[in-house]
């Protein structure tokens, strides 16, 4: 229990920080890729799709799971707070409240990571669809001519 309480915050914030780091990294990479993409290089639609959707699964997973990681941190923090209260025996309002408040910040951070991630993911998905549509349109005009 002591080990858990000592490393809980560090672990949760470490995981969330890593998630956030990955999202920023991959979204910048995707943005640069989309900007530099030239459609005529691709002869095959599936190859284009594979290149376009690379890393999007990772961003999606992080966006979906960051709140749960934060929630796990909060639950563990509350659990520890109550455990310590039970051990000490004296119910001090300040100690309980500060324990719960500190536990809740894990959820806050999880949401803070998840919200921008999902927005970025949606934007990238839309960009992929648009690019695919443009590629198809180009192919149709080439075939037509």
């Amino acid at each position: 229990m002591e080990l858990l309480s000592e490393y809980l915050d560090l672990t949760i914030f470490g995981i969330l920080g890593l998630m956030s780091f990955t999202v920023v990294w991959l979204s910048i990479e995707r943005w640069l890729f989309m900007r530099a993409l030239s459609l005529p290089d691709y002869q095959n639609f599936d190859r284009l799709t594979v290149d376009l959707t690379k890393h999007l699964t990772t961003i999606s997973s992080i966006g979906a799971n960051a709140p749960y990681v934060g929630l796990l941190g909060t639950v563990a923090g509350i659990l520890l707070t109550f455990y310590q209260i039970g051990q000490n025996g004296n119910v001090e309002v300040g100690a309980i409240m500060s324990g719960l408040a500190l536990a809740l910040k894990a959820t806050a951070l999880g949401l803070l990571v998840a919200i921008p991630t999902l927005m970025i993911y949606n934007a990238l998905t839309r960009k992929v669809e648009v690019t695919q549509a443009l590629w198809r349109a180009d192919r149709d005009t080439r075939q037509g001519s």
């Binding site: 780091f21 920023v24 990294w25 910048i28 990479e29 640069l32 530099a36």
Partner: peptide, 14 residues
């Protein structure tokens, strides 16, 4: 190159 740029920016930010 894109990955390196992404990693450095994310690292700096965090």
């Amino acid at each position: 190159k894109r990955h390196i740029i992404g990693i450095t920016v994310a690292l700096c930010l965090h």
